[in-house]
Design a protein around this nucleic acid. Structure first.
Lengths: 252, 252
DNA sequence: CGGCGCCTTGACCGGTCTCAACAATGGTGG
DNA sequence: CCACCATTGTTGAGACCGGTCAAGGCGCCG
Protein backbone atom coordinates (compact mmCIF):
# COMPACT_ATOMS: atom_id res chain seq x y z
CA UNK A 1 0.00 0.00 0.00
CA UNK A 2 1.21 3.47 0.80
CA UNK A 3 4.65 4.50 1.90
CA UNK A 4 3.42 4.54 5.48
CA UNK A 5 2.60 0.89 5.63
CA UNK A 6 5.78 -0.12 3.90
CA UNK A 7 7.63 1.64 6.68
CA UNK A 8 6.00 -0.69 9.11
CA UNK A 9 6.18 -3.86 7.06
CA UNK A 10 9.80 -3.54 6.10
CA UNK A 11 11.02 -4.06 9.63
CA UNK A 12 8.19 -6.12 11.02
CA UNK A 13 7.48 -8.80 8.51
CA UNK A 14 11.02 -9.87 7.82
CA UNK A 15 11.06 -12.78 10.23
CA UNK A 16 9.95 -13.89 13.65
CA UNK A 17 11.79 -12.45 16.61
CA UNK A 18 13.66 -14.19 19.34
CA UNK A 19 12.66 -12.89 22.77
CA UNK A 20 16.33 -12.44 23.56
CA UNK A 21 16.73 -9.55 21.15
CA UNK A 22 13.18 -8.23 21.22
CA UNK A 23 13.48 -4.45 21.26
CA UNK A 24 10.16 -3.90 23.04
CA UNK A 25 10.76 -6.26 25.96
CA UNK A 26 11.30 -3.33 28.37
CA UNK A 27 7.75 -2.10 27.87
CA UNK A 28 5.92 -5.34 27.09
CA UNK A 29 3.88 -7.59 29.34
CA UNK A 30 6.84 -9.96 29.74
CA UNK A 31 9.25 -7.25 30.85
CA UNK A 32 9.49 -8.47 34.44
CA UNK A 33 10.03 -12.11 33.53
CA UNK A 34 13.39 -13.67 34.28
CA UNK A 35 15.32 -16.15 32.16
CA UNK A 36 13.44 -19.09 33.65
CA UNK A 37 10.06 -17.53 32.95
CA UNK A 38 11.06 -16.77 29.38
CA UNK A 39 12.12 -20.36 28.81
CA UNK A 40 8.53 -21.33 29.54
CA UNK A 41 6.91 -18.45 27.63
CA UNK A 42 8.90 -18.37 24.43
CA UNK A 43 7.88 -21.81 23.07
CA UNK A 44 4.21 -20.90 23.54
CA UNK A 45 4.19 -17.63 21.64
CA UNK A 46 3.25 -17.29 17.99
CA UNK A 47 2.81 -14.46 15.54
CA UNK A 48 -0.24 -13.07 13.76
CA UNK A 49 -0.20 -10.69 10.83
CA UNK A 50 -2.94 -8.40 9.60
CA UNK A 51 -3.18 -6.07 6.65
CA UNK A 52 -4.07 -2.41 7.00
CA UNK A 53 -7.83 -2.05 7.26
CA UNK A 54 -8.41 -5.65 8.29
CA UNK A 55 -10.71 -6.30 11.24
CA UNK A 56 -9.03 -8.36 13.94
CA UNK A 57 -12.19 -8.90 15.97
CA UNK A 58 -15.73 -7.55 15.94
CA UNK A 59 -17.28 -6.52 19.22
CA UNK A 60 -18.94 -9.64 20.58
CA UNK A 61 -16.72 -12.11 18.68
CA UNK A 62 -15.02 -14.89 20.56
CA UNK A 63 -11.41 -13.93 21.31
CA UNK A 64 -9.15 -16.93 21.69
CA UNK A 65 -5.86 -15.10 21.95
CA UNK A 66 -4.16 -12.16 23.60
CA UNK A 67 -1.03 -10.48 22.38
CA UNK A 68 1.38 -7.60 22.15
CA UNK A 69 1.69 -5.24 19.22
CA UNK A 70 5.16 -5.73 17.73
CA UNK A 71 4.85 -3.47 14.71
CA UNK A 72 2.10 -1.29 13.32
CA UNK A 73 -0.96 0.32 14.82
CA UNK A 74 -4.33 -1.09 15.82
CA UNK A 75 -7.47 0.68 16.96
CA UNK A 76 -10.29 -0.29 19.31
CA UNK A 77 -13.62 1.29 18.40
CA UNK A 78 -17.11 1.36 19.78
CA UNK A 79 -20.18 2.01 17.62
CA UNK A 80 -23.73 3.09 18.41
CA UNK A 81 -26.79 1.72 16.60
CA UNK A 82 -27.02 4.77 14.36
CA UNK A 83 -23.40 4.49 13.28
CA UNK A 84 -21.71 7.08 15.46
CA UNK A 85 -18.32 5.63 16.38
CA UNK A 86 -15.73 6.46 18.97
CA UNK A 87 -12.22 5.11 19.09
CA UNK A 88 -11.47 4.05 22.65
CA UNK A 89 -7.89 2.92 22.30
CA UNK A 90 -4.95 3.21 19.96
CA UNK A 91 -2.54 0.28 20.20
CA UNK A 92 1.07 1.09 19.37
CA UNK A 93 4.09 -1.24 19.50
CA UNK A 94 4.50 -2.81 22.97
CA UNK A 95 0.83 -2.26 23.84
CA UNK A 96 -1.15 -5.26 25.01
CA UNK A 97 -4.30 -6.48 23.29
CA UNK A 98 -7.00 -8.65 24.79
CA UNK A 99 -8.42 -9.50 28.16
CA UNK A 100 -7.71 -12.72 30.06
CA UNK A 101 -10.77 -14.49 31.49
CA UNK A 102 -13.06 -12.87 28.95
CA UNK A 103 -14.29 -14.93 26.06
CA UNK A 104 -15.65 -12.21 23.80
CA UNK A 105 -14.20 -8.94 22.51
CA UNK A 106 -15.76 -5.88 24.10
CA UNK A 107 -14.74 -3.63 21.21
CA UNK A 108 -14.09 -3.92 17.53
CA UNK A 109 -10.35 -4.09 16.90
CA UNK A 110 -8.96 -3.05 13.53
CA UNK A 111 -5.50 -3.00 12.02
CA UNK A 112 -4.87 0.65 11.12
CA UNK A 113 -1.62 -0.20 9.37
CA UNK A 114 -0.12 -3.56 8.52
CA UNK A 115 0.28 -5.20 11.87
CA UNK A 116 2.36 -7.83 13.61
CA UNK A 117 1.18 -9.30 16.90
CA UNK A 118 3.08 -11.52 19.31
CA UNK A 119 0.35 -13.79 20.68
CA UNK A 120 -0.55 -16.48 23.17
CA UNK A 121 -3.68 -18.55 23.09
CA UNK A 122 -5.97 -17.05 25.69
CA UNK A 123 -6.24 -20.19 27.82
CA UNK A 124 -2.49 -20.65 27.67
CA UNK A 125 -1.96 -17.09 28.81
CA UNK A 126 -4.42 -17.47 31.68
CA UNK A 127 -2.43 -20.47 32.91
CA UNK A 128 0.81 -18.53 32.56
CA UNK A 129 -0.66 -15.68 34.60
CA UNK A 130 -1.37 -18.07 37.48
CA UNK A 131 2.06 -19.66 37.39
CA UNK A 132 4.11 -16.54 36.65
CA UNK A 133 3.79 -13.72 39.18
CA UNK A 134 6.12 -11.52 37.14
CA UNK A 135 3.66 -11.72 34.27
CA UNK A 136 0.50 -10.94 36.20
CA UNK A 137 2.25 -8.21 38.11
CA UNK A 138 3.30 -6.50 34.90
CA UNK A 139 -0.14 -6.97 33.36
CA UNK A 140 -1.65 -5.16 36.33
CA UNK A 141 0.78 -2.29 35.84
CA UNK A 142 0.00 -2.12 32.13
CA UNK A 143 -3.74 -2.17 32.75
CA UNK A 144 -3.47 0.63 35.29
CA UNK A 145 -1.40 2.69 32.87
CA UNK A 146 -4.08 2.18 30.24
CA UNK A 147 -6.69 3.27 32.74
CA UNK A 148 -4.74 6.46 33.39
CA UNK A 149 -4.44 7.05 29.67
CA UNK A 150 -8.17 6.49 29.20
CA UNK A 151 -8.85 9.06 31.89
CA UNK A 152 -6.56 11.58 30.25
CA UNK A 153 -8.57 10.98 27.11
CA UNK A 154 -11.80 11.63 28.99
CA UNK A 155 -10.51 15.11 29.80
CA UNK A 156 -9.70 15.65 26.14
CA UNK A 157 -13.08 14.41 24.93
CA UNK A 158 -15.10 16.25 27.53
CA UNK A 159 -13.37 19.58 27.82
CA UNK A 160 -10.89 20.37 25.08
CA UNK A 161 -11.57 22.43 21.96
CA UNK A 162 -11.10 20.97 18.48
CA UNK A 163 -7.75 22.73 18.12
CA UNK A 164 -6.55 21.46 21.49
CA UNK A 165 -7.66 17.95 20.62
CA UNK A 166 -5.68 17.92 17.38
CA UNK A 167 -2.62 19.38 19.08
CA UNK A 168 -2.86 16.80 21.87
CA UNK A 169 -3.02 13.92 19.42
CA UNK A 170 -0.07 15.21 17.42
CA UNK A 171 1.90 15.72 20.62
CA UNK A 172 1.25 12.15 21.69
CA UNK A 173 2.17 10.73 18.29
CA UNK A 174 5.32 12.83 18.27
CA UNK A 175 6.26 11.43 21.65
CA UNK A 176 5.72 7.77 20.87
CA UNK A 177 5.87 7.42 17.13
CA UNK A 178 7.84 10.33 15.79
CA UNK A 179 11.48 10.83 14.99
CA UNK A 180 12.88 13.51 17.25
CA UNK A 181 15.12 16.14 15.71
CA UNK A 182 18.12 17.87 17.32
CA UNK A 183 16.32 20.95 18.69
CA UNK A 184 12.62 20.98 19.59
CA UNK A 185 11.80 19.64 16.14
CA UNK A 186 9.96 16.40 15.32
CA UNK A 187 8.57 14.66 12.27
CA UNK A 188 5.52 12.45 12.45
CA UNK A 189 4.21 9.97 9.92
CA UNK A 190 0.50 9.86 10.68
CA UNK A 191 -0.78 6.28 10.81
CA UNK A 192 -4.37 7.56 10.98
CA UNK A 193 -6.64 8.88 8.25
CA UNK A 194 -8.57 12.10 8.91
CA UNK A 195 -11.63 10.00 9.63
CA UNK A 196 -9.76 7.82 12.14
CA UNK A 197 -8.38 10.92 13.83
CA UNK A 198 -11.94 12.25 14.04
CA UNK A 199 -13.16 9.01 15.59
CA UNK A 200 -10.40 9.16 18.17
CA UNK A 201 -10.97 12.81 19.02
CA UNK A 202 -14.76 12.91 19.03
CA UNK A 203 -14.89 15.24 16.01
CA UNK A 204 -15.94 15.07 12.36
CA UNK A 205 -13.35 14.54 9.68
CA UNK A 206 -14.10 18.01 8.26
CA UNK A 207 -13.28 19.66 11.57
CA UNK A 208 -10.07 17.65 11.80
CA UNK A 209 -9.08 18.80 8.35
CA UNK A 210 -9.91 22.42 9.10
CA UNK A 211 -7.97 22.45 12.36
CA UNK A 212 -4.96 20.81 10.74
CA UNK A 213 -5.05 23.62 8.17
CA UNK A 214 -5.40 26.19 10.93
CA UNK A 215 -2.37 24.83 12.78
CA UNK A 216 -0.46 24.92 9.51
CA UNK A 217 -1.49 28.53 8.83
CA UNK A 218 -0.37 29.47 12.34
CA UNK A 219 3.03 27.86 11.81
CA UNK A 220 2.59 25.27 14.56
CA UNK A 221 3.01 22.44 12.07
CA UNK A 222 4.24 21.97 8.51
CA UNK A 223 2.45 19.51 6.24
CA UNK A 224 4.24 17.52 3.55
CA UNK A 225 1.23 15.79 2.08
CA UNK A 226 -1.65 14.86 4.33
CA UNK A 227 0.19 12.23 6.33
CA UNK A 228 3.58 13.77 6.99
CA UNK A 229 3.75 16.36 9.74
CA UNK A 230 6.76 18.38 10.79
CA UNK A 231 6.65 20.09 14.15
CA UNK A 232 9.18 22.93 14.16
CA UNK A 233 8.69 23.58 17.88
CA UNK A 234 7.27 20.83 20.07
CA UNK A 235 6.86 23.20 22.99
CA UNK A 236 4.59 25.41 20.87
CA UNK A 237 2.53 22.37 19.92
CA UNK A 238 2.17 21.31 23.54
CA UNK A 239 1.12 24.86 24.43
CA UNK A 240 -1.71 24.54 21.91
CA UNK A 241 -2.77 21.22 23.42
CA UNK A 242 -4.07 22.74 26.63
CA UNK A 243 -1.13 21.41 28.57
CA UNK A 244 -2.73 18.64 30.55
CA UNK A 245 -2.43 15.06 29.42
CA UNK A 246 0.13 15.48 26.68
CA UNK A 247 2.90 14.01 28.81
CA UNK A 248 1.28 10.58 29.06
CA UNK A 249 1.31 7.62 26.69
CA UNK A 250 -1.82 7.01 24.59
CA UNK A 251 -4.51 4.58 25.64
CA UNK A 252 -3.82 0.95 24.92
CA UNK B 1 -26.42 17.70 56.27
CA UNK B 2 -29.12 16.94 53.75
CA UNK B 3 -31.38 13.95 53.69
CA UNK B 4 -29.11 12.40 51.10
CA UNK B 5 -26.12 12.28 53.31
CA UNK B 6 -28.04 11.04 56.27
CA UNK B 7 -29.13 8.14 54.11
CA UNK B 8 -25.52 7.24 53.73
CA UNK B 9 -24.40 7.97 57.24
CA UNK B 10 -27.14 6.15 59.04
CA UNK B 11 -25.93 2.76 57.92
CA UNK B 12 -22.27 3.50 57.44
CA UNK B 13 -21.10 5.36 60.47
CA UNK B 14 -22.74 3.22 63.10
CA UNK B 15 -19.73 1.06 63.77
CA UNK B 16 -16.89 -0.72 62.07
CA UNK B 17 -17.75 -3.81 60.12
CA UNK B 18 -16.53 -7.30 60.56
CA UNK B 19 -15.40 -8.77 57.23
CA UNK B 20 -17.57 -11.79 57.96
CA UNK B 21 -20.80 -9.90 57.50
CA UNK B 22 -19.60 -7.25 55.04
CA UNK B 23 -22.35 -6.84 52.49
CA UNK B 24 -20.03 -5.71 49.72
CA UNK B 25 -17.53 -8.55 49.94
CA UNK B 26 -18.88 -10.14 46.73
CA UNK B 27 -17.84 -7.12 44.67
CA UNK B 28 -14.84 -5.84 46.63
CA UNK B 29 -11.15 -6.40 46.08
CA UNK B 30 -11.09 -9.11 48.74
CA UNK B 31 -13.94 -11.13 47.21
CA UNK B 32 -11.73 -14.02 46.08
CA UNK B 33 -9.91 -14.34 49.39
CA UNK B 34 -10.49 -17.48 51.44
CA UNK B 35 -10.79 -17.71 55.21
CA UNK B 36 -7.04 -17.97 55.64
CA UNK B 37 -6.41 -14.87 53.56
CA UNK B 38 -9.02 -12.94 55.49
CA UNK B 39 -7.41 -13.88 58.79
CA UNK B 40 -4.31 -12.05 57.54
CA UNK B 41 -6.14 -9.13 55.95
CA UNK B 42 -8.70 -8.25 58.57
CA UNK B 43 -6.30 -7.15 61.35
CA UNK B 44 -4.58 -4.79 58.92
CA UNK B 45 -7.62 -2.91 57.71
CA UNK B 46 -8.82 0.36 59.18
CA UNK B 47 -11.54 2.89 58.42
CA UNK B 48 -11.43 6.45 57.23
CA UNK B 49 -14.32 8.88 57.25
CA UNK B 50 -14.81 12.03 55.21
CA UNK B 51 -17.51 14.66 55.18
CA UNK B 52 -19.36 15.64 52.02
CA UNK B 53 -17.26 18.11 50.07
CA UNK B 54 -14.01 17.19 51.76
CA UNK B 55 -10.97 16.61 49.57
CA UNK B 56 -9.41 13.20 50.15
CA UNK B 57 -6.33 13.87 48.06
CA UNK B 58 -5.18 16.56 45.66
CA UNK B 59 -3.60 15.50 42.39
CA UNK B 60 0.11 15.17 43.12
CA UNK B 61 -0.30 14.56 46.85
CA UNK B 62 1.41 11.60 48.43
CA UNK B 63 -1.08 8.75 48.82
CA UNK B 64 -0.20 6.43 51.65
CA UNK B 65 -3.28 4.26 51.57
CA UNK B 66 -5.63 2.42 49.27
CA UNK B 67 -9.16 1.40 50.09
CA UNK B 68 -12.67 0.37 49.20
CA UNK B 69 -15.71 2.62 49.35
CA UNK B 70 -18.03 1.18 52.00
CA UNK B 71 -20.66 3.90 52.01
CA UNK B 72 -21.12 7.15 50.16
CA UNK B 73 -19.82 8.47 46.87
CA UNK B 74 -16.42 9.86 45.90
CA UNK B 75 -15.31 11.52 42.67
CA UNK B 76 -12.00 11.66 40.84
CA UNK B 77 -11.48 14.85 38.87
CA UNK B 78 -8.88 16.32 36.56
CA UNK B 79 -8.41 20.04 36.08
CA UNK B 80 -6.73 22.13 33.40
CA UNK B 81 -4.72 25.28 34.14
CA UNK B 82 -7.60 27.54 33.17
CA UNK B 83 -10.01 25.75 35.49
CA UNK B 84 -11.90 23.47 33.12
CA UNK B 85 -12.50 20.26 35.02
CA UNK B 86 -13.56 16.79 34.01
CA UNK B 87 -14.66 14.06 36.35
CA UNK B 88 -12.90 10.85 35.37
CA UNK B 89 -14.38 8.45 37.87
CA UNK B 90 -17.30 8.12 40.22
CA UNK B 91 -16.61 5.78 43.14
CA UNK B 92 -19.65 4.00 44.54
CA UNK B 93 -19.77 1.42 47.36
CA UNK B 94 -17.48 -1.56 46.64
CA UNK B 95 -15.31 0.48 44.24
CA UNK B 96 -11.58 0.51 44.85
CA UNK B 97 -9.60 3.69 45.40
CA UNK B 98 -5.88 4.14 44.92
CA UNK B 99 -3.05 2.60 42.98
CA UNK B 100 -0.47 0.24 44.44
CA UNK B 101 3.18 1.05 43.58
CA UNK B 102 2.33 4.69 42.96
CA UNK B 103 3.28 7.22 45.60
CA UNK B 104 1.27 10.21 44.42
CA UNK B 105 -2.37 10.65 43.47
CA UNK B 106 -2.91 11.13 39.74
CA UNK B 107 -6.26 12.83 40.25
CA UNK B 108 -7.99 14.92 42.84
CA UNK B 109 -10.35 12.76 44.88
CA UNK B 110 -13.29 14.34 46.66
CA UNK B 111 -16.00 13.01 48.93
CA UNK B 112 -19.28 13.83 47.14
CA UNK B 113 -21.34 12.66 50.11
CA UNK B 114 -20.26 11.66 53.58
CA UNK B 115 -17.95 8.76 52.98
CA UNK B 116 -16.64 5.65 54.69
CA UNK B 117 -13.56 3.91 53.34
CA UNK B 118 -12.13 0.52 54.30
CA UNK B 119 -8.39 1.09 53.98
CA UNK B 120 -4.97 -0.49 54.05
CA UNK B 121 -1.72 1.37 54.23
CA UNK B 122 -0.33 1.36 50.73
CA UNK B 123 2.89 -0.44 51.60
CA UNK B 124 0.94 -3.01 53.58
CA UNK B 125 -1.37 -3.59 50.65
CA UNK B 126 1.55 -3.97 48.25
CA UNK B 127 2.96 -6.70 50.46
CA UNK B 128 -0.43 -8.37 50.65
CA UNK B 129 -0.68 -8.33 46.85
CA UNK B 130 2.58 -10.24 46.59
CA UNK B 131 1.61 -12.82 49.19
CA UNK B 132 -2.06 -13.20 48.27
CA UNK B 133 -2.76 -14.27 44.67
CA UNK B 134 -6.50 -14.09 45.27
CA UNK B 135 -6.11 -10.40 46.05
CA UNK B 136 -3.97 -9.45 43.06
CA UNK B 137 -6.10 -11.55 40.77
CA UNK B 138 -9.24 -9.73 41.85
CA UNK B 139 -7.51 -6.35 41.65
CA UNK B 140 -6.65 -7.08 38.03
CA UNK B 141 -10.28 -7.93 37.31
CA UNK B 142 -11.47 -4.75 39.00
CA UNK B 143 -8.98 -2.62 37.12
CA UNK B 144 -10.01 -4.13 33.79
CA UNK B 145 -13.67 -3.51 34.62
CA UNK B 146 -12.83 0.11 35.37
CA UNK B 147 -11.00 0.34 32.08
CA UNK B 148 -14.09 -0.93 30.27
CA UNK B 149 -16.22 1.58 32.12
CA UNK B 150 -13.82 4.39 31.24
CA UNK B 151 -14.07 3.39 27.59
CA UNK B 152 -17.86 3.40 27.71
CA UNK B 153 -17.56 6.88 29.10
CA UNK B 154 -15.31 7.90 26.23
CA UNK B 155 -18.14 7.04 23.85
CA UNK B 156 -20.51 9.13 25.92
CA UNK B 157 -18.14 12.12 26.08
CA UNK B 158 -17.14 11.98 22.45
CA UNK B 159 -20.34 11.15 20.65
CA UNK B 160 -23.50 11.52 22.69
CA UNK B 161 -25.82 14.53 22.76
CA UNK B 162 -26.52 16.41 25.98
CA UNK B 163 -29.88 14.67 26.34
CA UNK B 164 -28.33 11.24 25.80
CA UNK B 165 -25.60 12.03 28.31
CA UNK B 166 -28.10 12.93 31.02
CA UNK B 167 -30.22 9.88 30.28
CA UNK B 168 -27.14 7.65 30.39
CA UNK B 169 -26.08 8.99 33.77
CA UNK B 170 -29.55 8.59 35.25
CA UNK B 171 -29.75 5.05 33.86
CA UNK B 172 -26.45 4.15 35.49
CA UNK B 173 -27.42 5.66 38.82
CA UNK B 174 -30.77 3.86 38.67
CA UNK B 175 -28.96 0.60 38.09
CA UNK B 176 -26.44 0.90 40.89
CA UNK B 177 -27.83 3.34 43.37
CA UNK B 178 -31.56 3.46 42.89
CA UNK B 179 -34.40 1.60 44.55
CA UNK B 180 -36.15 -0.52 41.94
CA UNK B 181 -39.94 -0.52 41.90
CA UNK B 182 -42.25 -3.41 41.02
CA UNK B 183 -42.74 -2.61 37.32
CA UNK B 184 -40.20 -0.71 35.23
CA UNK B 185 -40.19 2.09 37.82
CA UNK B 186 -37.20 3.38 39.78
CA UNK B 187 -36.43 6.18 42.20
CA UNK B 188 -33.01 7.77 42.36
CA UNK B 189 -31.58 10.02 45.03
CA UNK B 190 -28.99 12.01 43.12
CA UNK B 191 -25.71 12.19 45.02
CA UNK B 192 -24.40 14.77 42.53
CA UNK B 193 -25.11 18.47 42.22
CA UNK B 194 -25.89 19.88 38.78
CA UNK B 195 -22.33 21.13 38.59
CA UNK B 196 -20.89 17.72 39.47
CA UNK B 197 -23.14 16.11 36.87
CA UNK B 198 -21.86 18.62 34.33
CA UNK B 199 -18.25 17.82 35.22
CA UNK B 200 -18.92 14.13 34.78
CA UNK B 201 -20.74 14.54 31.47
CA UNK B 202 -18.56 17.17 29.85
CA UNK B 203 -21.34 19.77 29.85
CA UNK B 204 -22.10 23.05 31.59
CA UNK B 205 -24.38 23.06 34.59
CA UNK B 206 -26.92 25.17 32.65
CA UNK B 207 -27.18 22.55 29.94
CA UNK B 208 -27.61 19.85 32.56
CA UNK B 209 -30.42 21.79 34.17
CA UNK B 210 -32.11 22.43 30.83
CA UNK B 211 -31.96 18.81 29.75
CA UNK B 212 -33.29 17.63 33.10
CA UNK B 213 -36.23 19.96 32.57
CA UNK B 214 -36.66 18.69 29.01
CA UNK B 215 -36.75 15.06 30.17
CA UNK B 216 -39.31 16.08 32.79
CA UNK B 217 -41.46 17.89 30.22
CA UNK B 218 -41.33 14.80 28.01
CA UNK B 219 -42.45 12.55 30.86
CA UNK B 220 -39.27 10.48 30.91
CA UNK B 221 -38.59 11.46 34.51
CA UNK B 222 -40.47 13.05 37.42
CA UNK B 223 -38.64 15.46 39.70
CA UNK B 224 -39.42 15.79 43.40
CA UNK B 225 -37.08 18.59 44.21
CA UNK B 226 -33.80 18.83 42.35
CA UNK B 227 -32.24 15.71 43.83
CA UNK B 228 -35.04 13.17 43.78
CA UNK B 229 -35.79 11.57 40.44
CA UNK B 230 -38.54 9.09 39.67
CA UNK B 231 -38.26 7.10 36.49
CA UNK B 232 -41.72 5.82 35.54
CA UNK B 233 -40.35 3.63 32.74
CA UNK B 234 -36.71 2.60 32.83
CA UNK B 235 -36.88 1.23 29.30
CA UNK B 236 -37.93 4.66 28.03
CA UNK B 237 -34.99 6.24 29.84
CA UNK B 238 -32.55 3.76 28.36
CA UNK B 239 -34.02 4.46 24.92
CA UNK B 240 -33.16 8.13 25.42
CA UNK B 241 -29.60 7.25 26.44
CA UNK B 242 -28.54 6.16 22.97
CA UNK B 243 -28.59 2.54 23.99
CA UNK B 244 -24.89 1.78 24.16
CA UNK B 245 -23.07 1.76 27.45
CA UNK B 246 -26.00 1.99 29.82
CA UNK B 247 -25.75 -1.65 30.81
CA UNK B 248 -22.31 -1.30 32.39
CA UNK B 249 -21.26 -0.12 35.81
CA UNK B 250 -19.83 3.40 36.12
CA UNK B 251 -16.11 4.06 36.07
CA UNK B 252 -14.28 3.53 39.33
C1' DC C 1 -6.13 9.66 -19.33
C1' DG C 2 -9.91 8.57 -16.26
C1' DG C 3 -11.70 6.84 -11.98
C1' DC C 4 -11.63 6.35 -7.17
C1' DG C 5 -10.29 7.42 -2.37
C1' DC C 6 -8.94 10.73 0.56
C1' DC C 7 -8.53 15.33 1.76
C1' DT C 8 -9.74 20.32 1.68
C1' DT C 9 -12.67 24.17 1.65
C1' DG C 10 -17.04 26.80 1.70
C1' DA C 11 -21.82 28.09 3.25
C1' DC C 12 -25.09 27.39 6.39
C1' DC C 13 -27.30 25.46 10.48
C1' DG C 14 -28.02 24.10 15.09
C1' DG C 15 -26.68 22.53 19.67
C1' DT C 16 -24.23 23.93 23.42
C1' DC C 17 -21.89 27.65 25.87
C1' DT C 18 -21.86 32.25 27.85
C1' DC C 19 -23.71 35.80 30.39
C1' DA C 20 -27.37 37.22 33.11
C1' DA C 21 -31.44 37.46 35.90
C1' DC C 22 -34.39 35.13 38.79
C1' DA C 23 -36.52 31.25 41.68
C1' DA C 24 -36.26 27.69 45.10
C1' DT C 25 -34.23 25.61 48.89
C1' DG C 26 -32.33 25.12 53.32
C1' DG C 27 -30.03 26.99 57.22
C1' DT C 28 -29.55 30.81 60.62
C1' DG C 29 -30.69 34.10 63.80
C1' DG C 30 -33.82 37.48 65.51
C1' DC D 1 -42.30 31.51 63.57
C1' DC D 2 -40.64 34.23 60.24
C1' DA D 3 -37.28 37.19 57.81
C1' DC D 4 -32.98 36.92 55.82
C1' DC D 5 -29.11 35.06 53.48
C1' DA D 6 -26.24 31.88 50.93
C1' DT D 7 -26.28 28.25 48.04
C1' DT D 8 -28.14 25.73 44.41
C1' DG D 9 -31.00 25.28 40.54
C1' DT D 10 -33.86 27.27 36.58
C1' DT D 11 -34.70 29.90 32.62
C1' DG D 12 -33.84 33.26 28.84
C1' DA D 13 -31.25 35.73 24.95
C1' DG D 14 -27.59 35.79 22.07
C1' DA D 15 -23.01 34.21 20.39
C1' DC D 16 -20.02 30.82 18.75
C1' DC D 17 -18.00 26.42 17.85
C1' DG D 18 -18.38 22.47 15.50
C1' DG D 19 -21.61 19.70 12.58
C1' DT D 20 -23.92 19.08 8.14
C1' DC D 21 -24.27 19.22 3.34
C1' DA D 22 -22.04 20.03 -0.83
C1' DA D 23 -18.50 21.00 -4.25
C1' DG D 24 -13.99 20.57 -5.79
C1' DG D 25 -8.79 19.25 -5.57
C1' DC D 26 -5.08 16.03 -5.15
C1' DG D 27 -2.70 11.73 -5.58
C1' DC D 28 -2.57 7.05 -6.73
C1' DC D 29 -3.44 3.32 -9.76
C1' DG D 30 -5.24 1.01 -13.55
Amino acid sequence: MTQINQDFTSAAFRADHSCADCRLRPRAVCSLCDVDDMRRLEPLKYYRRYQAGQVIAWAGDRMEFVGTVVDGVAAMTQTMEDGRTQMVGLLLPSDFLGRPRRQTAAYTVTAVTDLLLCCYRRRTFEDLLLSTPALSSRLLEITMDELDAAREWMLLLGRKTAREKIASLLAILARRGGARGPDGQARIVLPLSREAMADYLGLTLETVSRQMSALRRDGIIVLEGARHVIVPDCAALVAESGGDGAETAPAG
